[in-house]
């Protein structure tokens, strides 16, 4: 049976990605109300990544390592663990710190983001980077699930 924590971890991570996409959209053409919303979205995004870190970490240590990893490694796509999972679990560690930095910039510059194009471009680029990394991680999650499914199908057939 699929462990529910994997879905919870993925959903919370995607909410984090969506929160930073929200920050990006608000700051494309910022006004005071939009910056107010961007501050809320950035704080929420950081919180979601921290929650995803804890839930994903618990799932990885308590369930994935002892149960799923050996199945994938014995299946037809061992690279799903050897490459995709290894890259995913380590690149994920970049996200909470990038989100801390982005949130820090939004809270530091506040309404100055309207006139300070340098600071605004910086926040926009960081948001785009977070969204790209987050979506790549979700894609790697799909590859890992496919690796596990392929291994289980091989055992049934």
């Amino acid at each position: 049976m699929v462990h529910p924590l994997v879905g919870i971890h993925a959903a919370i991570g995607e909410l984090g990605v969506l929160a930073f996409l929200w920050v990006l959209v608000e700051l494309l053409n910022p006004t005071e109300p939009r910056i107010k919303r961007a501050k809320i979205a950035a704080a929420l995004g950081t919180l979601f990544f921290l929650m995803s870190w804890v839930t994903g970490g618990y799932y990885y240590v308590a369930y994935y390592g002892p149960n799923v990893k050996p199945i994938i490694k014995s299946g037809p796509a061992p690279w799903a663990h050897g490459v995709a999972m290894e890259v995913k679990e380590h690149v994920f560690l970049f996200l909470p710190f990038l989100s801390f930095l982005t949130t820090g910039l939004v809270y530091r510059y506040k309404n100055n983001l309207i006139k300070d194009t340098g600071a605004r471009k910086s926040v926009l680029l960081l948001c785009a980077l977070i969204v790209i990394i987050g979506l790549s991680i979700a894609g790697m999650g799909f590859v890992i699930s496919t690796g596990a499914r392929a291994a289980l199908e091989g055992k049934i057939v």
């Binding site: 490459v83 290894e86 890259v87 380590h90 690149v91 970049f94 990038l98 930095l101 910039l105 510059y109 340098g118 600071a119 471009k121 910086s122 680029l125 960081l126 980077l129 990394i133």
Partner: peptide
């Protein structure tokens, strides 16, 4: 120097990500 600092962060992240891959 927020733009300079952010460029460094983004470059480091991209290089580190590809290095791990």
């Amino acid at each position: 120097e927020v733009q300079k600092e952010t460029t460094r962060v983004i470059a480091t992240t991209i290089i580190a990500g590809f290095a791990l891959l």
